[in-house]
């Protein structure tokens, strides 16, 4: 009887499908567990956080933790600060990189490939190597304690995003650019009217990556911003980290606040996100 059931092709497929589904569920739960740990910690009392053995679910659901967290520091101000930086960075990255990428992909000029290789090679330099010289430079410019060191570099392009967008531009046929040129369009006009609309998915990817980077940046603000009024959310979370003890429940609640926009963004733009990753691996969307 049992053997007969498995002999049927459709039945065998059905069983496989169910097994697959269960495996995937287990995997997802495994990957979601740190997030759950964060949520559960944010809802516990400090005493329960420290208790051993740890509890998987809070015994007492302390929803007021969130309110207390929000009131522990001027998080509304920090949110505005972080948003200001992030929006400026995203604007800079998206526009400037798209512009540069168009040039590398569609305007032939002497030394283009060499220049492009140089741009790409900057990706090989670890950020920490340039950290100190950069700090010296910005401090000499008198930019410390302003957002300029965090925002201005975004308007000078980033190798990775240039590469990403250039690959996308390469897929636009040259004839389309030439046709526009013959109609009297300048490169700037072509970039604006043809380039941007046709590279929207790639630009969205760049926007998401830059948003992510700027929103989550901790080191940059830590280095350049000392004035508490200029603090970003990531810096603000430090208030829960004392020298002696850390208030894990509030820190987790705060982190969840900070995490939220990124998660929401991902939900809405996951199509572009995945397309962008696909682009990097050389696949065409």
């Amino acid at each position: 009887m049992k053997d007969a059931y498995f002999a049927s092709m459709t039945n065998r497929k059905k069983v496989l499908k169910i097994a697959n589904f269960i495996l995937l569920c287990i995997g997802s739960l495994l990957f979601l567990s740190p997030l759950w740990w964060m949520i559960s910690t944010s809802l516990k009392t400090m005493k329960e956080v420290m208790s051993f053995p740890p509890t998987f679910f809070p015994t007492d659901w302390k929803w007021e933790n969130y309110l207390k967290t929000w009131e522990a520091a001027p998080f509304d101000l920090y949110t505005i600060n972080t948003l200001t930086i992030t929006i400026l960075v995203v604007i800079g990255q998206v526009i400037v990189n798209s512009f540069v990428a168009y040039g590398f992909a569609k305007i032939p000029f002497k030394g283009r490939n060499v220049l492009f290789a140089i741009v790409l090679s900057t990706m090989m330099i670890p950020g920490f190597v340039t950290l100190i010289p950069q700090y010296v430079l910005f401090s000499k410019l008198g930019w410390v304690n302003t957002y300029l060191p965090l925002v201005v570099p975004a308007f000078f392009g980033g190798a990775f995003n240039i590469f990403l967008l250039r690959q996308f531009y390469m897929t636009i046929p040259n004839e389309m650019i030439e046709a526009a040129k013959m109609e009297g369009a300048s490169h700037f006009y072509i970039w604006r009217k043809i380039g941007i609309p046709l590279t929207k998915p790639a630009m969205a990817t760049v926007a998401i990556f830059s948003f992510n980077g700027a929103w989550n940046d901790f080191l940059g603000p830590l280095l350049y911003v000392n004035n508490e009024n200029l603090y970003t959310l990531q810096l603000g979370l430090q208030v829960f980290k004392g020298e002696m003890n850390t208030q894990w429940n509030y820190l987790m609640a705060g982190s969840l606040f900070v995490l939220l926009p990124v998660v929401i963004l991902f939900f809405f733009f996951q199509k572009y996100f995945i397309q962008g990753i696909n682009l990097q691996s050389g696949g065409k969307s």
Partner: peptide
């Protein structure tokens, strides 16, 4: 420059703007 020659051109793959 091409734009000032008063010439228009039709391309093999049409080169229409898809958007």
């Amino acid at each position: 420059p091409p734009a000032n020659r008063g010439i228009s051109m039709v391309f093999q793959n049409y080169a229409l703007y898809p958007h």
